[in-house]
Amino acid sequence: MIDPALLPHMRPDRSFQGLLLTLQTFWANQGCVVLQPYDMEVGAGTFHPATTLRALGPKHWKAAYAQPSRRPKDGRYGENPNRLQHYYQFQVILKPSPANLQDLYLQSLDAIGIDTKLHDVRFVEDDWESPTLGAWGLGWECWCDGMEVSQFTYFQQVAGFECAPVAGELTYGLERLAMYVQGVENVYDLNFNGREGAEKVTYGDVFLQAEKEYSRHNFEHADTDMLLEQFRMAEAACAKYLAAGEDGERHLMAQPAYDQCIKASHVFNLLDARGVISVTERQSYILRVRELAKACGAAWLKTEAGGGAAA
């Protein structure tokens, strides 16, 4: 049930930011550290080091954060009511996955106003795999009245390493969820700030122009020569930082190296959207990013937070 004490403009069913804040508060109350988005372009919240890297190693970890996700290929010049090349994921990671993770998830839905006595919430098989991250897990897509509103995954492997303990990951598609609870058919009509009348700001006010501009950029103008070069440079830099950070049993620079892996991945997505990567090349680019991810994962496991370096 939505907290009745909330001011109208803060209600998750009336305000996009209200929804985000409600989820943040909910998971903060479960003991998560509430982080801010990672300051790089990523394709999904999973790329945030707070998930990818923290999922590795023995140390316990609970975090929640919103992450803008860039999918250059999904741009539709602002003309599709459901598809965006930039959207928000709300990401929760709990390691080890608690026994009541499903219940916690359902409570979080309740907090944003989805009453499970009124709505049909279902856990439908959906195994998750990220070829670029060398990661996979088993879980579900969570349906509310036939609409997928979240991904629910028990990580089994990340960067090619077994996860032990296993982390549970929840990914809420914020726009979809907001459209559902606000009862809106077009993403650009979402009420962003919860105000009405002249004070109301919609999702379209904030992002429509950006969607148009980035669609042009992603499909027509992104400088492919530069991007190809950037990919090469990020790949080389990643290797260079990994080598420089080696310190016997320890590793001293896993995170800066991983930044370059993130960079390479995003550059690849842009190149893919520009259509300059052939089918066969595509596979090899994915493998190249995966190699970076694996190397970074191995390095992370030798850091203190990765549990590898005794104090």
């Binding site: 996955s97 608690p98 026994a99 195994d127 897990g137 088993l138 879980g139 028990y154 032990a164 296993v166």
Partner: peptide
Amino acid sequence: PKSMRWGTGTMRWVRP
């Protein structure tokens, strides 16, 4: 056909 681990355990089942 596919099974998984969860939490801190080592046993496998299709889901927890």
